[in-house]
């Protein structure tokens, strides 16, 4: 029973990622693309969690942490670039 629910959930997440990829390519403005990329990362985390429920294993749990951290750092870098024009500043007080 739960396996069927997990299968349906994985299908929904995959369709959500397809929609987000459309937004990533088409997105009228740059912030749309950044939000779409962040949401793709979160959906990937959800898919990995569902797959590890489906396969009844805990081998993929570190992948979840890794994807979460990398997605967070990437989103922060993109947001800072969009807000300030530079990603890494040499001196903040200048």
């Amino acid at each position: 029973m739960i396996l069927i629910a997990v299968k349906i959930a994985i299908l929904c997440m995959s369709i959500a990622i397809l929609g987000l990829i459309y937004r990533l390519i088409k997105g009228p403005s740059m912030p749309d693309r950044v939000v779409a990329l962040d949401a793709i990362g979160i959906n990937l985390v959800a898919i990995v969690a569902l797959v590890s429920i489906f396969l009844d294993t805990n081998a993929f749990l570190e992948v979840i942490l890794l994807l979460g951290i990398l997605s967070f750092i990437g989103t922060v870098a993109f947001s800072k670039y969009l807000e300030k024009g530079v990603a890494l500043e040499r001196d903040r007080d200048l």
């Binding site: 081998a59 570190e62 890794l66 951290i69 990398l70 750092i73 922060v76 870098a77 800072k80 990603a87 890494l88 500043e89 040499r90 001196d91 903040r92």
Partner: peptide, 28 residues
């Protein structure tokens, strides 16, 4: 014995330093 090792660990550590650089600046 499990996935991981020096390469991924090094990438994560440099990710942490990059996060520090993003939040503050390179001089700090």
């Amino acid at each position: 014995y499990t996935p991981g090792g020096g390469f991924v660990g090094g990438l994560l550590t440099s990710g942490a330093i990059i996060l520090l650089m993003l939040a503050f600046d390179m001089k700090t």
